[in-house]
Write a protein that binds this DNA or RNA. Structure first.
Lengths: 282, 282
DNA sequence: GCCATCCATACCCGGGCGGTATCGGTCCGG
DNA sequence: CCGGACCGATACCGCCCGGGTATGGATGGC
């Protein structure tokens, strides 16, 4: 299977519509139909159930969709990491650290400072991303190492080292009834706040349907919280970035939030190994 | 990047010889040279240092080799798992369990028996492989779940559940001086045995140079041990399969051997989830 | 019943992949 | 020191395949 075929299949499987998928791929619809047909024939597997009115995935198609996404990420990662390795002079390729925009700022700053004074330290670029985007960046090679928060982020498939374990808190508008309390229990949560959770863009940059406001960065989110339009559950350390009009209330009965460093397991970079060591020694 | 280009590059990077790589790929040498050149131009990266007498990898080339292997494994896995999903009727695709040939036999048997009586149990095929091959099988889709032995097998990138933790032992010829002792310390190890370790085939089925005998399965290995030609370090439970002419001597000072179940993290198969649950509940 | 929609098929064209022939550079043996 | 073996790069050619347009056939809505 060629990556082109996988890209084509993923497009159709996601759109469930040959015409739109073809448009998204920048090709005409007939070659796309033919390519999918050839792929099915060669795999000996029906991937899509199609009538002239609808397209749906078969079981085999669902399997291929998940596997193809992983494979395409791996190919994208290969391309990006090779490009980056080639730019830098021998052995000095920089690192890209993926981090939640705005979250764990202090921790990241200390980490970078501690690493920077190491002998043989390489340049570290920080890639600020929305929630759930760091994992993806790690998988597709945009980042070499990332700050993740278990259990919210999916750590599966990465090597990890725990940095901090803390309790979660809920960030709400100052003056909100909850702020009069010492803590709120997890079981009360969506209702006790009274405002909908924010919606973040998915991997295609689109927003799912729902009641909450659409947000794409943390400053914007904090403003919306300060305006009483939404709320956020975050590690208590996030309280430091809360600022005017936003108050953190501890959440009880919830599993602790683990802030951890994650990186792809096949990585053999000495710079990365050193970075991880510095991070965990502190 | 197309998988064809990745296959070509990996062939050249492994052979470090365009002619041999081309032969292995079943194409002529000139198209291969051209393909690699195009790849380098498009990546903007020199991957190979070549004179007319030798070919070697650049730093960027080393990065691409590691990433390309992972990506090609992912593509191969996509293809195999899709094929398998298509063969079985809806929702009943079987599982493939990778296991070290001969090792953990009892454990595997119990596991399979316990799973088989579950409601909705699907067929489980067992794939017997040489050491270090189960990981590869898991990565390239030949297996869905595997029995691995930490710290010998590389668990990076998989989800795992621990099954058993035990101490290692060394299997030697009956009558060997060591068998008179209660235990042997790890630090004494290669020397105290006096015979070379066996050599297993690598991922291409070839054997590295070295003193030990070439082996490809466990029966053969046990015969060689019984003949006093080699030895093996294994979990103590392996003593049960030792049989005539082979004796297990406990090893001290070594980290315990963990027998665990591993599976690819992106797997969303309900059959696999149930299998893992049965395995860990025992 | 007609039309809009949507996927499949038919057909054509051009780029790119793979082939052979050959060049240019390097190492080695005599 | 020279000729030949070796090896990767280049030149050139033919054909397959991927992409295009046009159109068919099926289905559902008005």
């Amino acid at each position: 299977m060629e990556t082109r075929e996988l890209r084509y299949f993923v497009a159709v499987a996601e759109e469930l519509h040959f015409g739109r998928a073809a448009e998204r791929l920048g090709i005409a619809q007939p070659p796309l139909s033919r390519a999918i047909g050839q792929l099915e024939r060669r795999l000996g597997a029906q991937l899509l159930e199609r009538t002239s009115r609808s397209v749906s995935l078969t079981d085999a198609g669902s399997v291929l969709l998940a596997e193809a996404r992983a494979a395409l990420d791996a190919v994208a990662a290969a391309e990006r990491r090779t490009r980056r390795a080639a730019q830098a002079p021998s052995g000095r390729a920089g690192l890209v650290l993926g981090s939640k925009a705005g979250a764990a700022n202090e921790l990241v700053a200390k980490l970078l400072a501690a690493y920077a004074v190491e002998p043989d330290a390489v340049e570290v670029d920080v890639l600020l991303l929305g929630p759930g985007q760091q994992e993806q960046a790690l998988r597709d090679g945009r980042a070499d190492v990332a700050i993740l928060h278990a259990p919210w982020d999916d750590v599966a498939g990465f090597d990890t080292e725990v940095l901090v374990v803390e309790d979660p808190a809920v960030l709400v508008q100052a003056g909100h009834p909850l702020t009069a309390r010492d803590a709120v229990d997890l079981t009360e949560l969506p209702e006790a706040v009274g405002v909908p959770a924010p919606r973040w863009p998915d991997r295609e940059g689109r927003y799912a349907e729902g009641p909450g406001p659409e947000v794409h960065d943390v400053t914007q989110l904090l403003q919306l919280i300060a305006l009483g339009r939404t709320y956020l559950v975050a590690p208590v350390s996030a309280a430091t970035l809360a600022g005017e009009g936003v108050v953190a209330v501890p959440v009880t009965g919830a599993p602790p939030v683990t802030t951890l460093l994650a990186w792809p397991p096949q990585s053999r970079s000495v710079a990365l190994a050193r970075f991880v060591r510095v991070a965990t020694l502190r």
